[in-house]
Simulated scan of single mutants.
Amino acid sequence: PDFVIELRSPSDHLKTIQKKMKEYQENGTRLGWLIDPQTKTVEIYRPNQEVEILENPSTLSGENILPQFTLNLEHIW
Rank of each mutant, 00 (worst) to 15 (best):
P1Q: 13
D2Y: 09
F3H: 11
V4C: 11
V4S: 12
I5V: 15
E6P: 03
E6W: 00
L7F: 12
L7N: 02
L7P: 03
S11D: 13
S11T: 14
S11A: 14
D12P: 12
H13Q: 15
L14T: 13
L14F: 02
K15S: 15
T16M: 11
T16C: 09
T16P: 02
I17A: 10
Q18C: 07
Q18G: 02
Q18V: 06
K19P: 00
K19Y: 11
M21S: 08
M21K: 08
K22C: 03
E23D: 14
E23M: 09
E23L: 11
Y24M: 08
Y24N: 13
Y24G: 09
Q25R: 15
E26C: 06
N27S: 15
N27K: 15
G28V: 11
G28L: 09
R30S: 09
L31V: 08
L31M: 09
W33K: 05
W33M: 01
W33Q: 03
L34V: 09
L34G: 05
I35G: 02
I35Y: 00
D36V: 07
P37W: 01
Q38F: 02
T39M: 04
T41C: 09
T41M: 05
V42D: 01
V42M: 02
E43Y: 08
E43H: 12
I44N: 04
I44A: 06
Y45L: 08
Y45W: 07
R46A: 08
R46H: 03
P47V: 08
N48S: 14
Q49E: 15
Q49D: 12
Q49T: 12
V51R: 04
V51H: 04
E52H: 10
E52F: 07
E52N: 11
I53S: 05
L54P: 01
L54G: 06
L54H: 12
E55K: 11
N56W: 02
N56P: 00
N56D: 14
T59A: 02
G62L: 10
E63R: 13
I65D: 07
I65M: 08
I65L: 09
L66W: 10
P67H: 12
P67Q: 12
P67V: 13
Q68C: 10
N72K: 07
L73I: 00
L73D: 02
E74L: 14
H75C: 05
I76L: 13
I76H: 02
I76Q: 00
